[in-house]
Each structure stands twice: as structure tokens, then as C-alpha cells.
Amino acid sequence: MSSTRQIGRVKAVLFDFDGTLSTLRAGWEETMAPFFKEAISGSYSITPEESALLEQEIEDYIDQSTGIQTIFQMRWLAEKVKEKGWNVEILGEWDYKAEYNRRLLLKVEERVRGLRDGLYDPTDFLIKGSESLLEELHKEGIPMYIASGTDHPDVVNEAEVLGVKSYFKEIAGAPVGRADCSKEKVIQELLSQQDFRKEGLAVIGDGKVEIRLAKENGAAAFGLASDEIEREGINPIKQQRLEAAGADRIAGDFTDIAQWLEWLGISRRAE
């Protein structure tokens, strides 16, 4: 927890998806990093020193860009390929995104198929306590939204197979083939609605992008420093990132429902 800010009763909640509610895409960094290195180095005989420096540069970029739309990460890759000049094959950002998505989805689609076929349970890929919090907010009549940098059809599909789609008034992923900032768009649209004020909006996410947007727009910013492997507990790297972004509160999961409801200004009803 990074402050003791009180927001009053929440009027709407905006969730990030990957790493905040869903772990279906856990491990995306392990797909992106080698892909970036392969695309940048090409067939060039990279020295051990150059390799180590490149790997560190890629790691640093992935860390600081977590949460942004994938196409912007691919734009960085395209520029880096040109800058290094090691790979004679230079693709466009959308071509890089298509190949990255192809590699990532090999893992994600296996998990989605397993969910549809009953081999996995949705709780295997949800941050612990998330279903309970969503149910509590639903009972309270709090409108909920998802904003994600993942392609819109994929976010909708993954929310459906995880059994949480029905909780949300709107799900907004990245527009396919367009470099729009869906998170900023959804937040701005919420703030423009006449029937609720910006001080009633809470944003919950594991990346600095949504925390920054919340702070810039006067909303309460709750960081979810999730361990995507265990699905509970604090990830210290995410915690540091979220603290630096100015999160009002930080937790590792949603298991302490009473604490979350208190943060959101909701008095739990007597049973």
C-alpha cells in the first residue's frame, strides 16, 4: 500500500485484463524476448558481448513497456532492427506483431482449448479472489469495464472462456489493425459520462500505463502486483513498478475481499 487515500463509494471500476484478472497469457515476456533478439540479430554473427548487451536492452525495454499496446512494442522492434543494421530483412511493425502473436498464441490457444474441453478449470487461470470480488461488485450494482492492450477479439474470447465476460458492461481491447490507445479511450469515455464523476472511478491493473492514466484523470489507482505463476502473493518487480507509477494502493491478489471492498468504499452487507 503506497498511500491512505480514501475515494468514497466507487461508482465504476475499470480493470486491466492480462496479469490483473487473467493469467492465460502469463509468460508472454518469454516469447517476446527471444523473438526480439532473433529479429534484431538475424544471421549476423553476434559476439557474446553484443549478445549480452542486446539481451539487457531488450529486457529493459520489455520491463518499461509492460501494459502498452503490442503494436507500439513492435514499432520499437522495427526501429531497433533498422538501428542495429545486423538483419538485412526488415519487416514492418504489423508484420512483427503478426509473427509475435502467432508464437504467443501457440501457448494461449492450447490453454483456451483446454478450458473449452474441460481439461482446465477457469480458476486455473484467474488471479485468486478475482471471481469473488467481481461477484461482490456485481451484487452492489457497480458497473465494471475491461480495458486491454491485447487485440479486442482475443480479450472478449478469453474473458468468455474464463467465465467472467458477463460481469462487464464493456470490454475494450486494442482495435485490430489500428494503433489506438484503448485504455485511454475507455477511461476518457467514462469520465465524459454525465451520470458519474471522475472521483468515483477506480482503475485496477498490474501495469504502469493504466496507473498513470488513472492518476492523470483523477481516478483512484489500485496496483495489482500479481505473481502470474502462483496467482497469489506479491511480485516485487511489479510492486516497484507500480509504486513508481504512483499507485494509491497495492495488493498481490484479491483474496482479502473485505480489504478490497473497504478500499472501494463499499460496506459489506450483513448476511
Rank of each mutant, 00 (worst) to 15 (best):
G27K: 01
T31S: 09
Q73W: 05
D248P: 08
E271S: 09
F35Y: 15
E59H: 11
T255R: 11
L134M: 02
V203I: 11
D227E: 04
E99G: 15
L224K: 00
A33N: 08
N87I: 07
S51K: 10
N101H: 13
Q259N: 10
F222N: 03
K208E: 09
V10W: 01
V10M: 04
N101Q: 15
I58D: 05
R178M: 14
D117V: 06
E59S: 14
A202M: 10
F35K: 09
A26P: 05
Q240F: 10
S43L: 10
G149V: 11
A159F: 01
I62Y: 11
E99F: 13
G85T: 09
R212L: 10
E99R: 15
F168P: 02
L106P: 08
G200E: 12
P48W: 01
I68N: 07
P143D: 05
D95Q: 15
K11Q: 10
I204A: 01
K37H: 13
M32I: 15
T70G: 03
L77H: 04
K185N: 14
S65A: 12
V186M: 13
E50K: 08
L54Q: 07
Q240Y: 12
I234Q: 07
T4L: 15
F72Q: 10
M144F: 06
G42T: 07
V108A: 05
I237L: 10
Q188T: 14
A202S: 09
I90C: 11
E210K: 06
I127C: 00
A244M: 13
S43R: 14
I204N: 03
P48D: 00
L21Y: 05
D195S: 12
A202Q: 05
Q193L: 15
H152Y: 07
N217D: 09
A219E: 04
Y145R: 03
N235E: 00
I7G: 07
E232T: 04
S51W: 03
G205F: 02
Q188N: 14
S65Q: 08
P34V: 13
C181R: 14
A219H: 03
G67K: 01
E199S: 15
S2D: 12
S2M: 10
L242H: 11
P153R: 08
Q194W: 13
I250R: 08
I7L: 12
A26I: 00
R268M: 02
A270Q: 03
A258T: 05
Q259K: 09
G252N: 04
G114P: 06
Y96G: 12
I127E: 00
E243I: 11
L91H: 15
G118D: 06
L24T: 05
D253G: 00
C181E: 14
G8Y: 07
R5T: 15
K37Y: 13
W76L: 08
Y96Q: 09
N157C: 04
E38H: 10
G118S: 06
I211F: 02
A52C: 01
D154W: 06
K215R: 12
F36P: 04
E131H: 05
G223N: 05
R111T: 01
A270N: 03
F35L: 12
Q188A: 13
